[in-house]
Nucleic acid binder design. Structure first.
Length: 845
RNA sequence: GCCGAAGUGGCGGAAUAGGCAGACGCGCACGACUCAAAAUCGUGUUCCCUACGGGAAUGAGGGUUCGAUUCCCUCCUUCGGCACCA
């Protein structure tokens, strides 16, 4: 039906016997054709991006790969639509930079070395060589002169330098703490790298354990509030939500309690200071440093036993939500500072040392966990919030966390409490004011977000450029000694210590302060440190006066469009934002955010719908597809077969459709005009031109919004119409020539090789990729007459054809004049006639 | 439990601003070409009905509206994140 409006060939005139077409397409040989153009583009440096102040710049960035050895279909899925978008932006008139590099440090190469002894450096650079070649087969517009490799000393020199800048700015510190340790990777992990209910390693899936270690941290929490601010960022809401939940800001108050004996200060954080008068006991985490000091002699044994038992349990066991609460009385009492009540101090493993202060005030009447604990150990429960409508304090069946009126709360009795958080809640606001007035507490904010643990007990990473001297402690390696390079002669052993520590001489050095003997830090940095600034290294990968050339920075930054997987929402994407803000405060970069627009692609699954993995044998190899179909077909299929941000299972048969499309485009442009074609009519050419410009409008919009699948389907539709128009004799007309030209331009970002070839064959000037994106001729899109469906009581009963310029009244009378409508009306007057201009007519009886 | 995303033919998916559901493609069926097959080309392809025509249908149920895949409410399913977070 829609075809009736847009068909180039009026239905009545459709040819009865279409000319058979030469379908073998022997002349389309992507393997030679693609190679030819790739070589030419490279020789001509067609994709070299240099500063050009006469044009607006566009920094398009796609997440750099780890050099695992083979390009995966997932890489194609991430990179080729990003490439198509970058190409589109280039045709739109932007000076586009689209760089590529390698996140080359990391565990897999070192783990492989432990197995076969091949040095990670050697393996990594061999892999890079191979992947670079595979990437070239995509025909992407990567500017290889901007390539950066994080494992290259000329790169990691600056990773080390950045560490020192953060250290000097007070943003890097060393701390002994219980950290997550992967027993398989033999290293510590940042909290973000521990996933799932069983708390497994993000890389290898092994459940992590806790270890007490001296480690380097970055003060990411200093930026917690700023990281929650996404102003000016065009990022997917899901990513912003994931980061917000990860940081998990909670507003409340910190309150100082004191022990009855010894007057020890105990700070607690609470989101419900309005319930302070109901705090009837305190609970410490078993690891809390004060536990030993306050425990009375008669409770000592029980407390020690409980601590041992808690320590033996894993985080998973401790974290099981439905686990029955356990705990032990320390024998000590604290004084509730608001009402001077004497309250017992317990230890229990439901209080975690890693959140807040490791100690809580327990308000059993209004907190479910405290309630369960109080019931079990028969501790007093005092209600301090009375629900609206409740007459007197009844015996509570469960903790009440809703709104109400404050009772049993001394000076604050009668105040209203809502379910709002923080100061928005009048009860909480009053409680905070009261605490601050009597100097026993203050408004406070807590985060789940932790400082970034960057130490890794591995060889294959950027060395942490710090030196430890017995007299002068930790000091950074002087700038003129950077980079601290990795020694080549190391032994590969899975010891849980960095191979650098086991190297006989590497760690020995001199103290930068006194020149006396000192030792190097033997841990290396988390590879996320390397990838936090790679977008800056692309600016000037060979620059040696600093991490980047400022002229390049000033022109290209910030990144305009960043594409990559959503799995990095709380890892790389958060690290790189923190890193940028830290550098900004140090004065190295400008602006508040490194990447303005972010778009996430989904995942390509195996044909069985499962995640692709070698062990499942469902991996799709892009090289095989490129050999068989050519890169243009693979690119087209990748953009066509799923919504990009969603992803979908691979379908090996589906790619045939894209292959057919590419071949049919080839045939359309290279076959002689069919002999049986009639002379054309102005109706045919006008309809063709309309379809061309409608398609251009649609495709332009879709490139803007990253809807690549409909870019392809629109191109397929237009091609089908062009075949029909050609049958109807349109070939040779000016409209046909325009259609050919626009078709190739629109298709160029998707299929760069075939379009370049056909463009050249049309006799157009090289290169199609330097052509301007066409503009829509709105006048050409306008229809002369339109067909409107006529609804009667919501059901479509007829269609009327009216001039496009018809007024509402004209449309109305045309609809009512229709025989079918008259039949349905049966002589009655319609109650109502609604004309939705250009859409339909709705008659209500 | 909390937060978020998504449910449309056999399949992937289309549907500017609330206005013709199923574009485009895969698959399938039939036909043309062929000795035959592949390739290619053409036609058809949501489901149901005594098929002229009619009815139902966008996870389920309800609401708003002349009109809902689209807006609102309740629920179900799948996926992702967080989770004894004080």
């Amino acid at each position: 039906m829609k075809e009736k409006e847009t068909a180039i060939v009026p239905v009545a005139e459709a040819k009865p016997k279409p000319e058979p077409r030469s379908g073998d397409n022997k002349s389309y040989q992507p393997q030679t054709l693609e190679k030819k153009w790739q070589d030419k583009w490279e020789a001509d440096q067609l994709y070299r991006s240099v500063i050009d102040t006469s044009k607006p710049k566009h920094y398009a960035l796609t997440m750099l790969p780890y050099p695992s050895g083979d390009l995966h279909i997932g890489h194609w899925y991430a990179m080729t639509p990003s490439d198509a978008r970058a190409r589109y932006m280039r045709m739109k008139g932007y000076n586009v930079m689209f760089p590529m590099g390698f996140d080359a440090f990391g565990l897999p190469a070192e783990n492989a070395a432990i197995k076969d002894g091949i040095h990670p450096m050697k393996r990594t650079f061999q892999n890079i060589e191979r992947m670079r070649k595979q990437m070239r087969s995509m025909g992407a517009m990567f500017d290889w002169q901007r390539e950066a490799i994080s494992a290259d000393p000329s790169y990691y020199k600056w990773t080390e330098w950045f560490f020192i800048q953060l250290y000097k700015a007070g943003l890097a510190y060393r701390k002994m703490s219980a950290v997550d340790w992967c027993p398989n990777c033999n290293t510590t992990l940042a909290r973000e790298q521990v996933w799932g209910d069983d708390r497994h390693c993000e890389r290898c899936g092994t459940p992590v354990i806790k270890k007490d270690l001296d480690q380097w941290f970055f003060k990411a929490t200093k930026y917690a509030d700023e990281l929650l601010n996404f102003d000016g960022l065009d990022w997917p809401q899901t990513v912003k939500t994931l980061q917000t939940n990860w940081i998990d800001r909670s507003e409340g108050a910190s309150v100082i309690f004191r022990t009855e004996a010894g007057n020890h200060k105990i700070e607690v954080f609470t989101t419900r200071p309005d319930t302070l008068w109901g705090a009837t006991f305190m609970v410490f985490s078993p690891e809390h440093p004060l536990v030993e000091a306050i425990t009375t002699p008669e409770n000592k044994q029980a407390v020690e036993e409980y601590k041992v038992q808690a320590a033996r349990q894993t985080d998973i066991q401790r974290g099981a939500v439905d686990k029955e609460k356990t705990g032990v009385f320390t024998g000590a009492y604290a004084i509730n500072p608001v009402n001077k009540e004497r309250i017992p101090v317990w230890i229990a493993d439901y209080v975690l040392m890693s959140y807040g202060t490791g100690a809580i005030m327990a308000v059993p009447a209004h907190d479910e966990r405290d309630f369960a604990f109080a019931k079990k150990y028969e501790l007093p429960i005092v209600q301090v919030i009375q629900p609206e409508g409740q007459e007197e304090a009844a015996v509570l069946e469960s903790a009440y966390s809703g709104a109400g009126i404050m009772i049993n709360s001394g000076p604050l009795n009668g105040l209203k409490v809502t379910t709002d958080k923080g100061r928005k809640n009048p009860g909480i606001a009053a409680a905070i004011n009261w605490l601050e007035k009597y100097m026993i507490g203050k408004e406070s904010v807590n985060y789940r977000y932790r400082d970034w643990l960057i130490s890794r007990q591995r060889y294959w990473g950027a060395p942490i450029p710090m030196v430890n001297c017995e007299i002068h402690g930790w000091n950074p390696v002087p700038d003129d000694q950077l980079p601290v390079t990795l020694p080549e002669d190391v032994e590969w052993k899975p010891t849980g210590e960095s191979p650098l520590k086991l190297h006989p001489t590497w760690k020995n050095t001199t103290c930068p302060v006194c020149n006396g003997p000192a030792t190097r830090e033997t841990d290396t940095m988390d590879t996320f440190m390397c990838s936090s600034w790679y977008h800056l290294r692309y600016l000037s990968p060979k620059y040696d006066q600093g991490p980047f050339d400022e002229a390049e920075y000033n022109y290209w930054m910030p990144v305009d469009t960043y594409t990559g997987g959503i799995e990095h929402a709380t890892m790389h994407l958060l690290y790189t934002r923190f890193f940028h803000k830290a550098l900004r405060d140090i004065g190295i970069v400008e602006g508040h955010e490194p990447m303005i627009q972010l778009r996430n692609q989904g995942m390509v699954l195996g044909e069985d719908g499962d995640k692709m993995s070698k062990s499942k044998g469902n991996v799709i190899a892009p090289d095989v597809l490129v050999n068989r179909y050519g890169a243009d077909t693979v690119r087209a299929y990748i953009m066509f077969f799923a919504r990009w941000e969603m992803g979908a299972p691979w379908d090996s048969q589906g790619i045939e459709g894209s292959a057919r499309w590419i071949k049919r485009v080839w045939t359309l442009f290279t076959d002689p005009v069919p002999s049986g074609a009639k002379p054309t009519t102005s109706e045919v050419t006008k309809n063709l031109r309309r379809k061309v410009h409608q398609t251009l409008k649609r495709i332009t919009r879709d490139f803007e919004t990253f809807e690549f699948n409909t870019v392809i389907s629109s191109l397929m539709e237009l091609m089908n119409e062009m075949y029909k128009a050609r049958e109807a004799g349109a070939a040779g007309s000016d409209e046909w020539k325009e259609a050919q030209e626009l078709y190739l331009k629109m298709m160029a970002p998707v299929a760069p090789h075939i379009t370049e070839e056909l463009w050249t064959q049309l006799g157009k000037p090289y290169s199609i990729h330097q052509q301007a994106w066409p503009t829509v001729d709105e006048a050409a899109i306008k229809e002369d007459s339109i067909e409107l469906p006529v609804q009667i009581n919501g059901k479509i009963r007829d269609r009327i054809t009216v001039p496009a310029e018809a007024t509402e009244d004209e449309i109305k009378s045309a609809a009512l004049a229709s025989e079918t409508v008259k039949k349905f009306l049966e002589g009655n007057e319609p109650k109502k006639v609604i004309v939705a201009k250009g859409r339909l007519v709705s008659i209500v009886m």
